[in-house]
Nucleic acid binder design. Structure first.
Length: 281
DNA sequence: AATGAAACCTGACAGC
DNA sequence: TGCTGTCAGGTTTCAT
């Protein structure tokens, strides 16, 4: 599933290929509006815009788009376009001659003749337009803090007074944004913390450890192009390699790679949750 | 206010 | 073979 490392990988890939390119035309499938912004509005605003850069915020891929001189006067403002991949979304940079996959919901035809395609079988993904804010560093920021750059103090403060489980708290995008089921389970394993532990009950020492383990696992996953556990691929259609590094995620009833105890699966916060009963206390 | 659970979706897969 | 049921899990919405 696309979580922070997968979204980062896709954003980097799209940025490398489309930065400086210009959107010539757009197409949207008429399918039951899988978009946050109306397709009609996007079809009006996107064409003529130049891709200034593409980056990641939480699990969102953000496009900074600026008008080109050819744009009609009405559309002279810079905008941000965000793509959320949901569960099954893909964002692919393809050639027009490449076959169009099933469940393709949006195509942006670029001046370079390449196409940016949004493919999403389950339609949990979302596309949205945002007004680019005038201030420096403004614009789309998401609701939570970025796990890669947060300080240990701020990290610990996020969970102060939280009565819920640490697993649910890690998944809460209004606290931290970008962590999903895989990296919640993997970071808790590395930190030696049971997923059902009350978040606020964890010692500062364990919180600091969790913060470091989370950053480590996210960083390592990014360097391996993310985890391809179902059908995740990057902007080139290539799979990631971090799924081979998973210690607990989807290893139910397999021996723990550290101590040999069988990995247990329970449901926490409505999600399949995997942990080692011996290593995580 | 905070938390949990259901709903949204389709494909993959297990079991019969 | 082909059907049914279950599972996957990010986010939104609804209920408690």
């Amino acid at each position: 599933m696309p979580e922070l490392p997968e979204v980062e990988t896709v954003a980097r890939g799209v940025d490398a290929r489309l930065r400086g390119d210009r959107i010539e035309a757009v197409w949207f499938s008429g399918k039951k509006e899988p978009f946050k912004s109306p397709a009609r509005t996007m079809a009006e605003v996107l064409p003529g815009k130049r891709v200034k850069r593409v980056f990641r915020v939480g699990k969102h891929i953000v496009f900074d788009l600026v008008p080109t001189e050819r744009a009609p006067s009405l559309k002279q403002q810079a905008v941000q376009w965000t793509v959320h991949l949901g569960m099954s979304g893909r964002l692919l940079v393809a050639s027009p001659s490449d076959p169009i996959p099933a469940h393709t919901h949006a195509i942006l035809r670029m001046r370079s003749k390449r196409e940016l395609r949004f493919v999403d079988p389950r339609r949990f993904g979302r596309l949205a337009l945002h007004a680019a804010s005038s201030g420096e560093g403004g614009g789309f920021a998401g609701k939570g803090r970025e796990p890669l750059t947060i300080s240990t103090n701020e990290f610990a403060a996020l969970f102060h007074g939280a009565r819920t489980s640490i697993k649910a708290a890690l998944l809460d995008q209004s606290r931290l944004q970008g962590v999903g089921n895989i990296y919640a389970d993997e970071s808790l394993f590395r930190a030696g913390i049971r997923p059902r532990s009350r978040a606020a009950s964890l010692s500062r020492k364990r919180m600091d450890r969790l913060c470091r383990c989370l950053k480590d696992v996210l960083g390592e996953a990014i360097s391996l192009g993310g985890s391809s556990v179902s059908d995740y691929v990057d902007a080139d259609g290539a799979r990631g390699f971090f799924q081979f590094e998973h210690k607990v995620y989807q290893r139910t009833k397999l021996p723990c790679l550290v101590c040999g105890t069988l990995i247990r699966r329970v449901v926490v916060a409505g999600r399949g949750t995997h942990y080692c009963p011996h290593c995580q206390s």
